[in-house]
Design a protein around this nucleic acid. Structure first.
Lengths: 163, 163
DNA sequence: ACAGTAAATTAGACCAGGCTAAAGATATTA
DNA sequence: TAATATCTTTAGCCTGGTCTAATTTACTGT
């Protein structure tokens, strides 16, 4: 059965806490997601019912194999989008994170794959590197001159001027 | 005050119906959004209260200037994302639309601007043109050889082989 | 070992946003 | 113009997700 965006957030938060602390408590999750403790309890009960989380009342929180798999998937999407926003769109880290966090629940896997392939492509092709130039938009890194123009833009302008 | 994703969807749907029909009826919106008629009535009452829609019971539906402005903004975001998914990621039109429709409510304006700038950049720079090659990912259009490799990939492979 | 504190849970409420069924208003057409 | 069909609205219900306040459990230090 499908998880709601909200439940995915809880699962991901648990995953991230466990990565550094080995044992997660409800308060950690609550702080991370900025919700009341009781909301966490509520979500936990659902996630336990769905077989994604191990948790007896007042006990610590761990993930089932199934839960870990699902959480990994979500965290992976998050990373892809974060990467995209930062390295391609030059968005600041904080905004990038927030955007990633909201769209990760929505964009289907095939499309996430395309983002990955696109990122790979940009990294492999040496003309793919680009940077954000304030007030003038994106420019290729390769051969940027003092006016913030790449080889291609420069050549084009030359051609345009001659014709 | 902020509009929820749901209300934005309604507003956008009204905007799109009005663009082709001049007068919108509740049923049009219901069909477009795949919801019950009563849900539309409900949403309309809220949108009227917020000063975005003109609508008396049993009357036709139009947008206030404020509503039109907001709707345009939403529709504009939709177009940007749709464009990005189709021309950059080579996603099929249907999926592109669905993705655009869900993230358009979530991504802040500054980030949408970056998407636009990025699209412009890719279109202006002649090395920016790229195409999707089945089974091998994105390749530059410029100088693609019979193996689907662009000039850059080819040179790199040559260099790698020689070293 | 136990009192005090911190954390977790329960209970109960609220809101948004959807639905169905029934009633009310409007259009169509014989 | 009366009957019928089609919209629209209302009323009432449900679910998911949040909250606060009160209670229960567990931990910690002396």
């Amino acid at each position: 059965m499908e998880l709601s965006s909200s439940l995915e957030d809880y699962l991901e938060a648990i995953y991230n806490v466990i990565k550094v602390k080995t044992a997660a408590r409800a308060t950690d999750i609550a702080k991370k997601l900025n919700v009341a403790n009781s909301s966490v309890t509520n979500a936990l009960q659902i996630l336990v019912k769905r077989g994604l989380v191990n948790h007896a009342p007042y006990d610590i929180i761990t993930l089932t194999p199934e839960g870990r798999k699902t959480a990994k998937q979500i965290a992976w999407k998050h990373e892809v989008f974060r990467d995209f926003f930062i390295t391609v769109l030059a968005i600041d880290s904080d905004t990038a994170n927030k955007c990633a966090c909201s769209i990760e629940h929505i964009i289907p896997d095939e499309v996430v794959e395309r983002f990955i392939q696109y990122l790979d492509f940009e990294r492999q092709c040496e003309y793919g590197g680009k940077r954000w130039v304030e007030g003038s938009g994106f420019k290729r890194n390769a051969g940027i001159n003092e006016n913030g123009q790449c080889e291609v833009c420069k050549e084009k302008q030359g051609k345009d001027a001659r014709s």
